[in-house]
Computed example of a mutant assay.
Amino acid sequence: MTWAIVIGLALLVFGLIAFALRAPRASWEVIGAALLLGIAGYALQGRPGQPGSPREPAETIANKGDAGVAERQKLGSEADLGDKHLVIADALARHGQFADAAEVLGGAVELDPANAEAWLAMGNALVGHAEGTISPASIYAYGQAATAAPDSPGPPFFLGMALIQSGRLAEGRSVWADLLARSPADAPWRGDLDKRLAELDRFMAGGQPAGEAPAR
Rank of each mutant, 00 (worst) to 15 (best):
P136C: 01
L105E: 07
F98W: 03
H129D: 11
V87Y: 10
L92I: 03
A99N: 06
A146V: 05
L105Q: 00
T147I: 15
V127N: 10
A145Q: 03
V127R: 07
G128Y: 02
F98Y: 12
P136A: 01
S152W: 02
Q97A: 12
V87T: 08
P136Q: 01
L120F: 05
R94I: 08
I164E: 09
A148S: 01
N115T: 07
T133A: 15
A91M: 12
L159A: 02
I88R: 11
F158C: 06
N115G: 09
N115R: 10
G143E: 09
S138K: 05
A137M: 04
I139A: 13
G143Y: 11
A146Q: 13
A108Y: 11
L86G: 10
Q97E: 12
L163W: 07
G160V: 08
A118N: 04
G132L: 13
T147V: 15
G132Y: 14
F98Q: 06
A114K: 07
A137R: 07
Y142D: 00
D90M: 08
I134N: 05
T147M: 08
L105R: 01
L86M: 12
G128V: 01
P155Y: 11
A89T: 00
A114P: 03
V87W: 11
G160E: 14
L159H: 07
A145V: 03
F158G: 10
A93N: 11
S135H: 01
D112Q: 12
L86P: 12
S138V: 05
A116H: 04
K84E: 15
Y142F: 05
A145L: 04
L159R: 07
E131N: 15
A146I: 07
V87R: 11
A130Q: 08
R94F: 06
N115C: 04
A121V: 05
V109I: 15
S152A: 13
G96K: 04
S135E: 06
N115Y: 05
A145C: 00
D151T: 15
A162P: 02
P153K: 13
A149Q: 06
E131K: 12
A137V: 04
G82C: 02
F98T: 02
Y142N: 01
V87G: 05
A118Y: 01
A125D: 11
L120N: 14
A125Y: 13
G123Q: 06
S135W: 10
P155L: 10
N115E: 09
D151Q: 15
Q144I: 01
Y142K: 03
G143I: 05
A141T: 10
L86F: 02
A89V: 00
P150L: 09
R94W: 13
V127K: 06
L126R: 11
A130M: 02
N124R: 01
L111W: 09
A108R: 12
G96E: 05
G160T: 06
Y142C: 00
L126T: 14
N124Q: 07
N115W: 03
T147H: 04
A93I: 05
I88K: 15
L111F: 10
P136W: 06
H85V: 01
I164S: 14
E103T: 12
G143Q: 01
I88Q: 14
H85N: 13
F157E: 10
I164Y: 11
G160P: 12
A130K: 04
V109L: 04
N124F: 11
H95V: 02
G143W: 10
A102L: 00
A99L: 12
K84F: 12
Q144W: 00
A121C: 08
